[in-house]
Design a protein around this nucleic acid. Structure first.
Lengths: 103, 103
DNA sequence: GCGACTCATAAGTATTTGCTTATGTGTTGG
DNA sequence: CCAACACATAAGCAAATACTTATGAGTCGC
C-alpha cells in the first residue's frame, strides 16, 4: 500500500493530475484537458492513483467525478515522519507538537 | 529535483536502505548486509539516492560512509504540505502552527 | 610492490512502465 | 432505436528500470 503510493507519485503526469484535483473535483474528461496524452492513458493513470488510494471516484450519469482522497496521503506522511529526526530544528519540533495534540 | 526524490523513493530496496541509514551512518558494505542483491546493484541504488539529495557520503580510507541527508526530504515535505487541506482536522491545524512559527 | 579489500563503472539483459490504437460497456438525447 | 458521449479495457510497442557479470580505480596490510 505504501509502495503503491510511492509508485503512483513517481510519475510526473500523475502528480500533475493530483495537483489539478487539489483545486476541486473534476470529471475524467475535464481532468484530461491540458494533458498531451490520450484518453486511455489518462484512464490508466487514474486507475493507478485510485489503486494507491489517493483519489476517490463518484459516478454521475455517464461521467465520473474524481477527487483527492483526504486520507490517501496519510501513509506517506507517516513514512516521512520517521525522518523528522533528521530535519532542521524547526520541523523537528512539529513531532512534539503532534504528540501533544494526541493527548 | 522533486521528481528525483519521488523516483528514488519508488523503489522498495532504496526505501529499505534509507531506513537502515536512519539508524545511523553505514559504510557501503555494511549497508549491503541483508540485501539479496549484488554489490554493483547496491552501488547503483546509492547513486540514485545521492542524486536525489537523500543521502550524503563521507570518504574514509577505502570505505565510504553514507548517511541520511538532513535536508533531503524537505522538498517532499513541502510537496506534501500542499495536500494538508485534505487531511483530517488534526493534521490541518499543523499548517497554522507552522505559520505561527515563521513569525 | 602486491594481493586483498571497498566501491564505482561498463555492458548486456529481462522486466516494468507508459504510451499508443482499437474496441467494449454503459449513458444520454433526439 | 441509435448515434454521440464518457470512460474502461485489451493488445502491442518503445523506453526506462533494476538487475546481472566483468572490470576499473583507489586504499590498506604485509
Amino acid at each position: 500500500m505504501e509502495a503503491d503510493i510511492f509508485k503512483a507519485l513517481a510519475d510526473p503526469n500523475r502528480r500533475a493530475m493530483l495537483e489539478r484535483l487539489a483545486a476541486g473535483e473534476l470529471t475524467g474528461s475535464a481532468l484530461g484537458q491540458g494533458f498531451a496524452i490520450s484518453q486511455p492513458a489518462m484512464s490508466q493513470h487514474i486507475a493507478v492513483l485510485r489503486g494507491a488510494g489517493l483519489i476517490t471516484e463518484r459516478r454521475e450519469g455517464r461521467s465520473v467525478h474524481y477527487a483527492v482522497n483526504p486520507d490517501g496521503m496519510a501513509p506517506l506522511h507517516d513514512w516521512l515522519s520517521r525522518y523528522q529526526a533528521f530535519w532542521p530544528e524547526r520541523l523537528g519540533r512539529l513531532k512534539d507538537f503532534l504528540k501533544e495534540m494526541d493527548q
